[in-house]
Design a protein around this nucleic acid. Structure first.
Length: 642
RNA sequence: CGCGGGGUGGAGCAGUUGGUAGCUCGUCGGGCUCAUAACCCGGAGGUCAGGUGGUUCAAGUCCCCUCCCCGCAACCA
């Protein structure tokens, strides 16, 4: 009986087409899943989509369609990219799947009945037309930040989960299972920032939107994302409160959840606690992988630097994209993607090292042995042969170690190191010289056998990374000996068989030519993308007049202690002086601001930030890079800006 | 003093329990011709962020201080 292995990705949020950074996760998980299958595990590999929530509700509204129609669309787009990337998931779950919704509703019900979820009231500022609560700090002037209409005090019912009740047990679990949160540094973040600080109860329902799974006994509430989305890992296996499906009995607990580092908190704190409350075992490991960035920037639509997997596939092919993602990503630090690097890696690893090695070796086999795989004569084996063979064994071992510790890029590197060694072996043994001397036929046979076998070993080890490429290599070699087991020891390739037809595995790319083509095909992104994020409503001139903007001069400025982003700024409005706090410390030094004139929102409700009072707001633009709106130096102090 | 991770030849990274600094790419020179202008060899290039700090026979590797970067958290009004 095979040992089971249950591996999952996070479910992708079905709001937009996923970019290459999102796609990285499924590729990574697929590589691990494929490897585990090679190792003989009975693997269940789950992925899917998270399809509820306010954002999706809004996007659907914008698109003028029902949320379900919207997510059907996006989910199929996501799935088609997963398929395009040749990922071997066992099941694709959607949180709108009927069985999932039912199971989640019952999970909620059960947690409520046993007292882990309790009803509470939330009081705050509420905007009736927008049907939404506004945080205390957003409630500027008692006016809704979205629509500008007056807010009123309101109470909202909500369901909270008693997280604190399980904190000690979770702490103990983390201590008893040092590998649970991975990598190590992430564990410290979770423990120090949340567990040691004391867990807050978590709000697990919403009434502010409808697109979700209703609370069965209180249908004006919708189950919020945590319980809904996280439960996918068990509902996909047929878990339900009263009856656990066969798959569940077989595969749960998960051996590993592969997730982005950004959602580690939900998977290492809330999810285990939910499971504890349900009386179910916890996952064995949660691996928070780093991000794939575009250059040094996070990939995002608003930055206009989005790269999609399918576009890359058109240029480079599926396996080249897989290889890049897997080989380029460091274990813990963020990796980056660029066309330049992708081309460089493609040429170096795939075309020059792997592709050319396969090509030249098979070509020689055809030329010198009529395509028949020669026998390996151990009696004339020399040190050069032994060295290569030793390298094969070493590679096998190291790849295993690297996979066991999730160092996937290192595992990949290891195999390419073997291929490099094989290329060198050709130079060392000079088969074209041996071929000229009939008495060296035996040596030549050994050399070619050793090369073909090394290539086979490499292809087997590369299978989790580049399945299609490996299959091609197997067919070039005319071999069906492709198990991981067959590669443990040198010599699995059967002599006497004929090699197959070959083709160029990876065409060399001319970097300049391709980069020029890419630049050509790029839409002229110089013009800003049309904003699609804001809930921008039309306002009247009177609405605008509610905002009192005035010219002020910065007369003093200093950093706020203990705050990284805040500057404490003294302003002169002409008719009065006042202090504001602004989150621009990262972009401006205090000295360079003094004497500058800025636009200030003068009638903003005071707030306290990091213990410092702020009476107004300086206008600035930008999200990741903030630019203050400076006024002309001749603008009179205190002048109203319209 | 919130918690944590880093700063290593042009780029991206390794450097385990301290013992003459490695890998891939790039670059320069050479070799070979089986092969996809590829492959192989060699050279140049690093005071391992700084403290002309401490421990040691010996420190990139341990300790202390400073500077800078990055995560998480907290305030981007």
């Amino acid at each position: 009986m095979k040992e089971k292995y249950y591996i999952t990705t996070a479910i992708a949020y079905a709001s937009r087409k996923p970019h290459i950074g999102n796609t990285y996760e499924i590729i990574l998980t697929d590589a691990i899943a494929r490897r585990k299958r090679q190792e003989g595990y009975d693997v269940f590999f789950l992925t899917g989509t998270d399809e509820h929530g306010q954002k999706i509700e809004e996007y659907a509204k914008e698109a003028g369609i029902e949320p379900k129609a919207y997510v059907d669309n996006v989910a199929s787009c996501i799935r088609s990219i997963w398929d395009l990337m040749n990922t071997s998931y066992s099941k694709f779950i959607r949180t709108t799947d009927d069985y999932h919704e039912k199971a989640v509703a019952r999970i909620f019900e059960r947690l409520y009945k046993q007292g882990d979820i309790y009803k509470t009231e939330y009081e705050g500022w509420y905007c009736v037309p927008c049907e939404s609560f506004v945080t205390e700090t957003q409630a500027v002037n008692g006016v809704c930040p979205d629509c500008g209409r007056p807010l009123r005090r309101a109470k909202e019912e909500a369901y909270n989960f008693k997280m604190s009740k399980y904190a000690d047990r979770l702490m103990k679990y983390i201590e008893d299972n040092p590998d649970f949160i991975f990598p190590e540094a992430r564990k410290k973040e979770m423990v120090n920032n949340f567990l040691k600080a004391g867990l807050q109860d978590l709000c697990v329902s919403r009434t502010s939107f409808k697109w979700g799974i209703p609370v069965s006994f209180d249908p004006k509430h919708v189950i919020y994302v945590w319980i809904d989305a996280l439960s996918n890992y068990i509902t996909a296996l047929g878990y339900d409160v009263d009856e656990k499906g066969e798959l569940y009995k077989k595969y749960w607990p998960a051996d590993v959840h592969i997730i982005g580092k950004d959602i580690l908190r939900f998977h290492t704190i809330y999810w285990p606690i939910i499971l504890m409350a349900l009386g179910e075992p916890l996952p064995k490991k949660v691996f928070g992988h780093p991000w794939l960035l575009n250059g040094t920037d996070k990939i995002s639509k608003s930055k206009g630097n989005v790269i999609y997997a399918d576009d890359l596939v058109k240029l480079f092919g599926v396996d080249a994209v897989r290889h890049y993602c897997l080989a380029e990503m460091p274990f813990a630090a963020d990796g980056s993607i660029s066309y330049e690097n992708l081309i460089a890696r493609y040429n170096a690893d795939l075309a020059n090292n792997l592709g050319n090695l396969v090509n030249r070796t098979v070509a020689m086999t055809k030329k010198y042995f009529d395509g028949v795989i020669p026998a390996y004569d151990k009696s004339i084996e020399n040190d050069t042969d032994r060295d290569l063979i030793a390298k094969c064994g070493e590679t096998y071992t190291k790849v295993q170690e690297f996979f066991d510790t999730f160092h996937i890029a290192d595992a990949s590197d290891e195999v390419f190191g073997l291929l490099r060694r094989a290329n060198k072996y050709i130079d060392e043994t000079t088969p074209w010289v041996l071929a000229k001397d009939e008495s060296q036929k035996g040596r030549l046979g050994n050399v070619l056998y050793a090369l073909l076998e090394t290539i086979r070993i490499g292809a087997v080890l590369l299978f989790p990374f580049m399945p299609q490429t490996s299959e091609k290599v197997f067919s070039f070699l005319g071999t069906d000996v492709t198990s991981l087991e067959s590669v443990k020891n040198f010599g699995g390739l059967v002599s006497g068989n004929k090699v197959g037809e070959t083709e160029v595995l990876f065409d060399r790319i001319d970097p300049e030519k391709m980069l020029a083509e890419i630049a050509e095909s790029m839409p002229k992104e110089k013009t800003a993308a049309k904003p699609d994020d804001a809930n921008v409503n039309e306002i009247t001139i009177d609405d605008f007049k509610n905002v009192e903007l005035r010219c002020a001069e910065i007369i003093a400025c200093e950093p706020v202690p203990k705050a990284k982003k805040l500057l404490k700024i003294q302003l002169d409005l002409g008719y009065e002086k006042r202090q504001v706090v602004s989150g621009i410390a990262k972009f401006y030094k205090p000295d360079e601001l003094i004497g500058k004139k800025v636009a200030v929102v003068a009638n903003l409700k005071p707030a306290v930030l990091c213990g410092v009072e702020s009476n107004g707001m300086i206008l600035a633009s930008g999200e990741d890079t903030v630019r203050v709106v400076f006024l002309d130096k001749d603008t009179p102090l205190g002048e109203r800006i319209r």
